[in-house]
Write a protein that binds this DNA or RNA. Structure first.
Lengths: 131, 131
DNA sequence: CTGGATGCAAAGGGTTTGCACGTTT
DNA sequence: AAACGTGCAAACCCTTTGCATCCAG
């Protein structure tokens, strides 16, 4: 197996994702990192996101759009995705305990993904304003 | 707005998806349809999947792999995805009622997505056999 | 006849990868 | 010095789209 070495790029990417409450895409991360590393390439961003994901430092989120988002908050939690502006919000819900769900299936559960869709507060306000 | 016309291709695609318990990808659907329509093109498959999805006849599922799956069972239910063989199984779980979740957030919830990950029964057996 | 549906092929668009060079250990 | 990381650009791969033709209503 490979050993990971220090890399300024990877450190910065990680600290950026951890520092932000949004769930940035690879492209957003690339743009931000560009400020510190003018020669940065997309390949490096993707490679490091993959490594950080493998290390469990971040989580790759897939919201059905064409690109993935990355989340630095690895504690199990759920998301609310606005179907209008595509923003992603963290929400905390009491979903069934894993042991309980485990009873309903023969398969071995190791993780879950819980997501809600709808209109976020901002978009609701905008819509009211337009009427 | 467009009016949909009858098309043998679309009919067949729909009845295939409805008849199957798996959650086929566009490519699988294409291969199966090829038997009936040797000249079928991928464009037609995708266009029809889009239309059927718009009509609410099927649901597009995104499991984070590079391609999408389609589900003909539109009643709200959740999925179990095997992280080893990538198979998708339907499971029925008592997740929190929407009204309850709604109380925990300022955003307006319109839908949800609940998914569990782990090892399916088949893969568990295989792994035991290998030890 | 009119406008949606199809086939074909090319274009899209996010992600991955090969390779030579740069860095960390 | 050995091996991982980076930049660059090309390759990938699933999906979308333009266009001429076909066909349902």
């Amino acid at each position: 197996m490979n050993q990971y070495r220090n890399s300024k790029q990877r450190e910065n990417i990680l600290s950026y994702i951890k520092s932000v409450k949004t769930h940035p895409t690879a492209n957003v991360i690339y743009d931000v990192m560009k400020l510190d590393f003018p020669n940065l390439s997309m390949g490096t961003v993707y490679r490091n996101l993959q490594i950080l994901s493998d290390q469990g430092e971040i989580t790759k989120l897939d919201f059905g759009s064409t690109f993935d988002h990355y989340d630095g908050y690895t504690k199990e939690h759920s998301h609310f995705v606005c179907t209008s502006c595509q923003k992603v919000y963290d929400i905390q819900v009491d979903f069934p305990k894993r042991e309980q769900v485990q009873k309903t299936t023969v398969h071995q559960i190791k993780g879950s993904l819980i997501r809600y869709y709808g209109l976020c507060q901002d978009c609701m306000k905008k819509m009211k304003g337009e009427n």
